[in-house]
Design a binder for these strands. Structure first.
Lengths: 214, 214
DNA sequence: CTCGACGCTGAGCAAGCGCTTAGGGCCGTA
DNA sequence: TACGGCCCTAAGCGCTTGCTCAGCGTCGAG
């Protein structure tokens, strides 16, 4: 259980000690879950005493919130880059799925906290996070709507399909493990291909037929 | 937050009080998570004192295990019925996905415990559950392999696709909520269609084009 | 050199946790 | 009526939890 990922993860946050607490929190929450993680465990991983946590964060829940917010903002940025890129709806959707699935694999520890610890947030913090999640949902649905309008996609249930596409990517965080799994970029390519087939109109199929090798 | 589901859910289990504890445990674990649930809460929902729990279950973890095992066995039964049914690989896969996705929607409380509380199990119990999960995986992969062999499916990465199909269905338990969502059978139909398009060989498309009426 | 602010620690508090134990009512059998 | 087994409760034990607080060292500003 090593952590090769998270390169310059929490870049330039506050005093360096707060940064260490954030990464320690991500690791611990991802491994055991929020409620099974003790403040002593987090502080220990960051190399300090339990009391030090409360200098940088008001409560354990606020530490979770800070992790969750930064995580959601990064996830949104990944989708937004795809949605705002040039190209057909098919290209933008492939970009979005490839990048989003890959992000969930590469940063699966952060992603696990982002996707599976929402219930532990306080009411106000939860509301703020939900707003970010709705934006992500809206961006994906927008791409699919574009494709349907252009006749590139044949999708009967747009909201349902958008939900399924996001759901597929999100669940990568659950099953992906750095050790046993295929590399993140492979997950991204596979998922982009699968989603492409899910939405493609029959006549637009030939464009995809020649496959994902580039 | 009512519970219309779970009809004759834990049918004929032990003394009736143990049954009440199991359903109370499912509700509480699904709502708050295993670690955030107290034995007092479970006992309270079942209408008894905290000590009563320990007459029927050795520990809180054993209660979780019993829920998880029964849940996994039911999930496996759903997939097994599809895998062993008559029909083409395409028909069996559609059956499997429709039933499995629908099960995760209909029994989303049980499913949440089944899919998201594995980490709370003890080592031996975890191993027993993992064996059940591998069977489910094997059954789905088997159907897809059949379809590829018959030329009905065009799938480059069979294990990866099987994983994605299961992942898609499993994640229904995360986002589905009885109140706000579409009905479970609609989720099943949508997902069966999406997965069908994911795996179908281009030439077999026409068979699907005219839809699911039999 | 003095001093206040900052980052941190050691010790510990109140609350809540999983779980145990002693005992009480209720049942079918004799 | 007597009795043994089954369910159950009231009380509480030992421990861990999130969090606090008094105090200590370090360091830049005056």
């Amino acid at each position: 259980m090593q952590d090769v990922q998270e390169p310059a993860a929490w870049g330039g946050v506050e005093p360096e000690a707060a940064q260490r607490l954030l990464t320690a929190g991500v690791e611990a929450f991802a491994e055991r879950g929020y409620h099974a993680t003790t403040t002593r465990d987090i502080a220990g991983r960051a190399g300090m005493s339990p009391a030090a946590l409360y200098i940088h964060f008001k409560t354990k829940e606020e530490l979770l919130f800070r992790i969750s917010r930064v995580g959601h903002e990064r996830a949104r940025a990944v989708i937004a880059a795809a949605a705002e890129s040039e190209g057909t709806a098919g290209e933008r959707l492939a970009y979005a799925v490839r990048a989003f699935a890959r992000w969930h694999a590469e940063h699966h520890t952060t992603a696990r906290v982002v996707q599976y610890e929402l219930a532990a947030l306080g009411e106000e913090h939860y509301a703020e996070i939900v707003a970010l999640r709705r934006e992500i949902d809206r961006l994906v649905r927008g791409i699919i709507e574009d494709g349907v309008r252009d006749g590139e996609f044949a999708v009967a249930d747009v909201p349902g399909t958008a939900l399924a596409v996001l759901s597929l990517c999100v669940d990568v965080a659950r099953w992906f493990s750095a050790a046993g799994s295929r590399p993140p970029e492979e997950v991204g390519s596979l998922y982009a291909d699968l989603v492409g087939r899910m939405v493609a109109a029959p006549d637009a199929r030939d464009a995809r037929r020649h496959g994902p090798q580039k």
